[in-house]
Amino acid sequence: MRGSAMSARSSPPKYLAISADLRERCLKMPVGARLPSERWLAVDFGVSLMTVRQALAELASAGWVERVAGSGTFVRRPRVEMGPSLTSFTEDMRRRNLRPSSRLISFERVATDSDVARELGVRPGDEVITVERLRFADGEPMCHELAHLPLHLLSVLESADLEGSLHEALTAATTVLVSATRKVRALPAPPRECRLLDLPVGSPALEITDTFYDTRNRPVQTARSRYRFDRYEVLSKLSRQPNNSRPRQQPEEA
């Protein structure tokens, strides 16, 4: 008797189990779809309305649903917050308990243009490696990525899993990325990328261009990634720089 009581106390609350179940259902439903009513869910799970409301509140706080008073609960997708730290797409997804994956579109040697040449520290027209991929989270397209890397990394990439993490492959080959520069802008996504990202043609995208550097401050990779506008937001931490100039003193009155 005492053991069963301890087991009951150690088991997670029912609303968390229901929330996890509903999250799996949301993944199979399109954004904007309406969930069954609270009363229907209470009967379906065999719990009280209060427990169902707790489960829906948990989903809403995580960004999986939107609750509209008088209308119901609707499926949405949580936004991924991109912070100021240096992390890869794979790391970002894993931290959010999402399953990262990629689909390789192309892997080739090309003559570089002036913009990429400047970022990688090579001459325009020099050959570089390009890796074009579509990145997924839990099977949903999140980002179209076009990466350029110096030609001396060709053997590393030829033996790497290009549908996995490029950063992990480079680290395994003793090329550790320790710093980066980042440019962010919003723009209309080209029709091809709208199709790849499962967005209506004409949708906006969040374009992020990163150039990564190794421990010797050498550019190792520059990547232009276009993210779904409805799934990403950028977080920046700002602080005011101290003002070293002293305020001018007012002249004393005679």
Rank of each mutant, 00 (worst) to 15 (best):
T171C: 13
S7Y: 14
T130S: 04
V201A: 14
R67K: 10
L197I: 02
V65M: 07
R226Y: 03
P141V: 05
A160R: 13
T215S: 12
R94I: 07
A17N: 09
R25L: 13
P78K: 06
E91G: 07
R79E: 05
L170G: 11
H148D: 03
E127Q: 10
V128M: 11
V234F: 02
S61T: 12
E24C: 06
G83W: 02
E127T: 12
I208Y: 13
Y232C: 07
L134W: 05
R216D: 11
V75Q: 08
F212W: 15
V80F: 13
G70R: 03
E168Y: 06
T209I: 14
Y227N: 06
F212Y: 15
L153F: 07
L49K: 03
R39G: 01
A137D: 02
T174E: 15
R9G: 03
Q221R: 15
S236W: 12
S48R: 02
L153R: 12
R94E: 10
H144N: 04
S61Y: 08
A180D: 12
R228H: 01
P191N: 02
S10E: 03
I129A: 09
T112S: 14
A147H: 13
T90P: 01
S245A: 08
R182Y: 05
R226G: 04
V116W: 06
P78T: 00
A147V: 12
K237D: 12
F45E: 07
G139H: 13
A180F: 10
A180M: 15
L170K: 12
H144G: 05
G63K: 01
A5S: 13
A223S: 14
Q249G: 02
R94V: 09
D210S: 14
K28V: 07
A20P: 08
W40L: 15
V220I: 15
A169P: 07
R94D: 00
D21V: 13
R218K: 09
F107I: 05
P204C: 04
G46C: 06
A57R: 12
M82C: 04
W64A: 04
V178N: 05
V43Y: 08
A160F: 09
E158W: 05
F107K: 01
G3N: 15
K183A: 14
A173S: 11
L22W: 07
V110Y: 00
R248F: 08
R224M: 10
L104F: 06
C194M: 01
F212R: 11
K183Q: 14
L153W: 08
R218S: 11
T112W: 00
S225K: 07
L162P: 11
Q249D: 12
E91K: 12
C194K: 04
S19P: 03
D44F: 15
V122L: 01
L187W: 00
K28A: 11
P190R: 01
